[in-house]
């Protein structure tokens, strides 16, 4: 192969490999502009999850760019047609120790820094608020392919004539620790509210507590995130977050409507 052709080949391949970290980082920078980034978050724990995502992103980004650039450089530099032989080495113990120990420390740090947020969302349920695991605001019942919400009667029972059942729409108060009980009637579903950064599978035969505190009134998507059959793709719901007082009057009105029907 002529040396010019060889150089061109090396150059093309090098640029190709180089494009990966460059375009890769660029798309992450641009993603928000393109609407390909997280939706805003409106729950109390949402920001801490986003923060952890960012922490890992920065760590990963540095590793990514660093390793890819080294790879590209080594490829370009050492694919030169050289008359000499390669460096004859079988490794280096000190280096080996260093590049095991540093990531080890980093990774242990990463692992431990996740625990608090996870406990907040999934382990430590609110005990002081108006709603608790034993006395949830509502029961959410997933089935192929809809969501049903049940608000208990005044005694907190979920069975009986005074239970309010609403399909599709879930109404909750803002700035309140809402605990709900997630159930499934048939197969697996998953209760996913992107703006709350909340996801939990609904498992038939299990009652799984879920909690969140919405920070901003509004209407948000509820999406089924676990394959549940042919209609999985359109198993949508809506979460209406109302200001506290509005929620109270909304609930009262529902009760009235219920009795009015009788």
């Amino acid at each position: 192969m002529s040396s010019l052709k060889h150089f061109l080949l090396r150059a093309v391949i090098t640029l190709l490999f180089l494009a990966v970290p460059i375009l890769g980082v660029w798309t992450f920078v641009k993603a928000e502009e393109w609407g390909l980034w997280f939706p805003p978050t409106y729950s109390t724990y949402g920001p801490s999850i986003d923060f952890l995502f960012d922490v890992i992103m920065w760590m990963v980004a540095v590793t990514f760019v660093g390793t890819e650039l080294l790879l590209v450089w080594f490829f370009f530099r050492y694919s030169k047609k050289d008359a000499t032989r390669a460096t004859y080495t079988h490794g280096n113990h000190t280096l080996e120790m260093v590049w095991t120990a540093i990531p080890a420390l980093l990774l242990i740090f990463v692992a431990f820094s996740q625990m608090k947020a996870w406990s907040t969302v999934k382990i430590n349920f609110p005990e002081d608020g108006p709603y608790t695991v034993a006395k949830p605001l509502m029961e959410i019942y997933a089935s192929q392919f809809d969501w049903r919400v049940r608000y208990p009667d005044a005694q907190g029972n979920f069975e009986g004539a005074d239970v309010i059942e609403v399909p599709y729409d879930i109404t909750v108060p803002a700035d309140t620790k809402v605990v709900l009980r997630l159930k499934s009637r048939d197969v697996l579903h998953s209760f996913f509210v992107p703006v709350f950064r909340l996801k939990q599978d609904a498992v038939p035969g299990m009652e799984i507590p879920v909690w969140f505190e919405a920070t901003r009134p509004g209407d948000y998507d509820l999406i089924c995130a676990e394959l549940c059959g042919w209609g999985h793709y359109k198993m949508a719901g809506k979460i209406h977050v109302l200001p506290k007082d509005e929620f109270a009057s909304w609930l009262a009105k529902q009760r009235e409507n219920l009795y009015a029907k009788d």
Binding site: F38, S48, I49, L52, F53, I56, M57, M59, V60, V110, Q114, A117, W118, V121, K122, S190, F192, P194, R197, L198, K199, A225, E226
Partner: peptide, 15 residues
């Protein structure tokens, strides 16, 4: 690493 992190996986699981 993102998915291994439990809190982050809450959002990105099954996406």
């Amino acid at each position: 690493i993102w998915m291994a992190s439990t809190p982050v996986d809450i959002y990105i699981h099954d996406t």
